[in-house]
Design a protein around this nucleic acid. Structure first.
Lengths: 355, 355
DNA sequence: TTGTATGCGTTATCAT
DNA sequence: ATGATAACGCATACAA
């Protein structure tokens, strides 16, 4: 393939001139420029990106590392990153499905020299060291970080207050025996949601330790199994908070299979507000988070970090988690207010209906 | 940051030796190697990817270009590509949301030098020229191509036979007035599905030109609007084939809003079998395609193309589109067989139930 | 306005 | 087993 040298030779100029034409740096003689352009077109010359980034130290690429690419949630995050990156003329170097620190390290090394910044969601604590090492080279933006890393910006959802609002709503509806299906152990989101669940109970004067905590892993199948386990329980909880919608879907299926009616027999609330939540039977009450917006925001932070260089501060941003009341949680029972504002320092809000 | 030179200096060896240690090329003296490794660790040396790929002409990266990143379908494709790429130790350079040939060209140029191959789904015919130009540089694998490009491998779904099977099924159920909600004009999948729709009607001795063809664009909102338009029609069709599930979802919502019962009043069939299809009310009969598998297969083809070099043949592969019968299409009416095999050279198959 | 020359951080081909 | 040194393709400081 034609290189800058080929074009220079064919046009009878130096490579510096060709380079200038393509980067319209210094003013180049219009005639010369058009001649070079013509030759370049004829030779179908495309500058080599690797060579460019080697000299300019710029790649116009953002690295993205995610723990896994399963479930709608991560797809949405990627979409958000993708869109906003394009708006800034950046491409995305994707490397997901990392389950441990070792893989993260390898992927990080492979990205070095090919990216101007890294947006990552660390699967576990072990990846923190990798983050530190990457951070010495390019800006890093953390997604829902377990631990804040000095010098890294981060964006996170208000998992805690979102979960708290959801459970508080159930309590407001009159429920006193509420179970939770948790996410995978070690997952930050899962832990925060569990914490919100417990806090809501405690706030209402109930004993968090008395509540049924059924282990899950964010997958639909776990929700189904949890449903089976739940039905065998005596006394059977009157409401269930699933730590994500995927498990809520499985739970709903298990309940339906057992002939239970939702919300009459059991109330169900999820978390994430995935696309199908509004279309489930019954429509799922859940906590809505804007996964796409998370990616969008991460890119914005990254752009700032790239601009300001290594001295850039470490902004922390929180994105709201809003309770969306649909039908799976049932309506207010007599004597209980339905519209009370959910408590929470971050001011939880409540939305109703399909969207 | 430390470069290979820094390591060499600190270890008292030449850069060639350091390079050898990291690529375990020729045998290096174990002592020297361990010393170099030690120094490299201390200096936190990471090879620069851009420099590596400049000399080796290898990037361990696959370019991925998609027309848009909206809807579950594309997310699934990306997931498939991502997974299989990782299995081959490749990363992904993503650039989506391209709506026209100009954008595709720009994105293609930006990728040059950073990728070993390109997997792309061209939004329109104008992108073909870009494909040709990219192809002279790196192998290209096309996803659902409108036109086969000489020297490019491709993977496509059996859109035609899938749609045909779906509509044939409706006809077998006794329907004689079947409408279609089409995808966006110019979209290959959309056109093939329309073609399958028409063929099914023709095969049954019906007049394709007499059928109601309602324009859509694959979005949920288009399905909703189509539903409204459909209900105003007299006589009202007894069945509708939505060219994708997203529109079927909107259609279902419109019908429910109008108090119509599915499938009693109107039968509905979709295409894609997205995750929520099985959970809709009623569960959606649709044509299932394995979007994730498409990506997976594309990577496999790419690996072959990269191996075999520029002389690699141009394999074309077809992935099945299987009718999944759920409840939105209703059951057989008297006198009509329900289990008949769908016609089609590619041997359409029928599946039942939730999965 | 244009050309020369150097460097970016590697790998790889020679020697030694 | 190891060391010079020449690419790789481009951008850019400096000279002309």
């Amino acid at each position: 393939m034609a290189t800058i040298r080929d074009v220079a030779r064919a046009a009878g100029v130096s490579i510096a001139t060709v380079s200038r034409v393509f980067n319209d740096h210094t003013l180049v003689n219009p005639e010369t420029a058009s001649r070079v352009l013509e030759i370049a077109t004829k030779l179908d010359y495309w500058p080599n990106g690797a060579a460019q980034s080697l000299t300019t130290r710029r790649t116009q690429t953002l690295g993205v590392m995610l723990p896994e690419l399963f479930g709608e949630f991560y797809s949405e995050v990627i979409r958000g990153i993708d869109r906003q990156s394009r708006a800034h003329d950046y491409q995305i170097l994707l490397s997901s499905s990392h389950s441990n620190g070792e893989e993260v390290l390898i992927a990080g090394r492979a990205m070095l020299g090919r990216i101007d910044g890294l947006i990552m969601m660390a699967p576990d604590e072990a990846s923190i060291e990798t983050v530190e090492r990457v951070r010495r080279r390019v800006p890093v933006v953390l997604l829902n970080p377990r631990i804040e890393v000095e010098g890294c910006c981060s964006v996170a959802f208000e998992n805690f207050s979102g979960a708290r609002a959801a459970v508080t709503h159930l309590i407001g509806l009159g429920h006193r025996d509420i179970a939770i299906i948790t996410g995978p152990p070690g997952n930050v989101d899962a832990e925060e949601r569990l914490r919100g669940f417990r806090r809501a109970l405690a706030d209402a004067g109930m004993d968090p330790d008395a509540a049924a905590v059924i282990p899950g892993d964010f997958r639909e199948s776990a929700g189904y199994e949890a449903g089976v386990a739940l039905l065998a329980r005596k006394p059977r909880p009157t409401a269930v908070f699933a730590a994500n919608d995927g498990m809520a879907v499985g739970l709903l299926a298990a309940l339906a299979a057992a002939g239970k009616r939702v919300p009459r027999d059991i109330a169900v609330v999820g978390f994430d507000d995935i696309a199908m939540a509004a279309y489930l039977n019954p429509p799922l009450t859940t906590v809505s988070v804007d996964a796409c917006g998370l990616g969008h925001r991460a890119v914005d932070l990254m752009m700032g970090a790239i601009e300001s260089g290594p001295t850039g501060g470490s902004l922390r941003q929180q994105l709201p988690a809003v309770l969306v009341v649909r039908q799976s949680c049932g309506s207010a029972t007599a004597g209980t207010g339905l519209l009370e504002q959910t408590a929470g320092s971050s001011g939880g809000t409540v939305r109703r209906g399909r969207k």
